[in-house]
Simulated scan of single mutants.
Amino acid sequence: MEVFKVVEIGEMVPAFEEEMLIVLFGQMAPPELRAICVVHDYQAKEDNVLKVGTKLQLGAQEYTITKVGDAANKNFRELGHVSVYFRNGENDILPGAVIAEPVIFPKLQVGDRLKIIND
């Protein structure tokens, strides 16, 4: 299990509830993207931590990843960056994204713990 925490929440993050999207980014997030990101302190220890079936806990809500884009793990390992879409059904996926369910927008605050759980 990987545990890390939210260090900053961009002021535009709540606006993405309509899209059911959270953009995670490591602490090196560029200034022009910080407004739309949940910035965290994750330091990648291994490759390919994001897989179909991985549990992702964001605040109090636990999700299960159902699809992983081709570049999601590389971006997450190098930049701490991944777009998490909360959807179900057959959806196209962007290379740097994952799709997770249930379709519930996470309520996050600075200091919340985030977890990646691979059994």
Score class of each variant (00 low, 15 high):
Asn75Gly: 02
Gln109Ser: 15
Arg34Ile: 03
Phe4Trp: 05
Ile9Asp: 02
Ile117Cys: 03
Ala15Tyr: 15
Lys5Glu: 02
Thr54Ser: 09
Gln109Cys: 12
Val52Cys: 11
His40Gln: 07
Asn75Lys: 07
Val52Leu: 07
Lys55Asn: 10
Val103Ser: 09
Lys5Leu: 00
Gln27Met: 13
Leu21Pro: 06
Arg34Pro: 04
Met20Ala: 05
Ile22Thr: 10
Tyr63Pro: 04
Arg87Ile: 04
Ile9His: 05
Ser83Val: 13
Pro31Arg: 15
Gln27Thr: 13
Gly10Val: 05
Tyr63Cys: 08
Val49Gln: 04
Ile93His: 01
Gln61Tyr: 14
Val52Tyr: 01
Asp41Cys: 05
Ala60Ser: 15
Gly89Trp: 06
Glu8His: 14
Lys51Asn: 13
Val23Cys: 13
Pro30His: 06
Met1Trp: 12
His81Thr: 08
Pro106Ser: 08
Lys67Thr: 09
Glu11Gly: 13
Gln109His: 15
Glu2Met: 12
Val84Lys: 04
Arg113Pro: 03
Asp92Tyr: 08
Pro106Phe: 01
Ala71Tyr: 13
Asp112Leu: 10
Arg77Asn: 12
Glu62Phe: 08
Lys115His: 00
Lys55His: 10
Ala100Arg: 02
Val38Glu: 10
Asn88Ile: 05
Asn88Gln: 13
Asn118Met: 12
Phe105Gln: 11
Gln61Phe: 10
Ala97Arg: 02
Ile9Ser: 06
Asn91Lys: 14
Thr66Arg: 04
Val38Tyr: 10
Pro95Val: 01
Asn91Tyr: 12
Phe4Met: 00
Phe4Ser: 02
Glu46Met: 10
Gly96Ser: 06
Val49Met: 10
Ile116Thr: 04
Val38Lys: 09
Val98Trp: 05
Val13His: 07
Gly96Met: 08
Glu11Lys: 15
His40Ser: 06
Ala29Lys: 06
Ile104His: 09
Val13Cys: 09
Gln27Pro: 04
Phe16Thr: 13
Val13Pro: 02
Ile116Lys: 01
Val82Lys: 00
Val39His: 02
Leu24Cys: 08
Val84Arg: 00
Ala71Leu: 13
Val110Tyr: 08
Ile22Met: 07
Phe4Leu: 01
Pro102Gln: 12
Arg77Lys: 15
Ile104Thr: 11
Glu8Asp: 11
Leu94Asn: 11
Pro30Ala: 10
Val110Met: 10
Leu58Gln: 04
Asn73Tyr: 07
Pro30Val: 03
Ile104Met: 08
Val13Arg: 02
Leu114Glu: 02
Val82Thr: 12
His81Ile: 06
Arg77Tyr: 14
Glu18Tyr: 13
Val23Glu: 09
Met28Ala: 13
Gly69Lys: 03
Leu79Asp: 05
His81Cys: 11
Gln61Lys: 13
Ile36Gln: 14
Tyr85Thr: 04
Asn75Thr: 11
Tyr42Pro: 07
Glu62Ile: 11
Val13Trp: 00
Glu17Gln: 07
Arg113Phe: 13
Gln61Ile: 14
Tyr42Thr: 09
Asp119Ala: 13
Leu56Thr: 07
Pro31Ser: 15
Leu50Val: 11
Lys51Cys: 14
Gly89His: 08
Tyr63Asn: 05
Glu11Ala: 14
Gly80Asp: 07
Asn48Gln: 11
Ile9Thr: 09
Lys107Phe: 11
Tyr42His: 14
Glu62Thr: 14
Lys55Gln: 11
Ala15Phe: 15
Val52Pro: 06
Asp47Ala: 15
Lys55Ala: 12
Tyr85Ala: 01
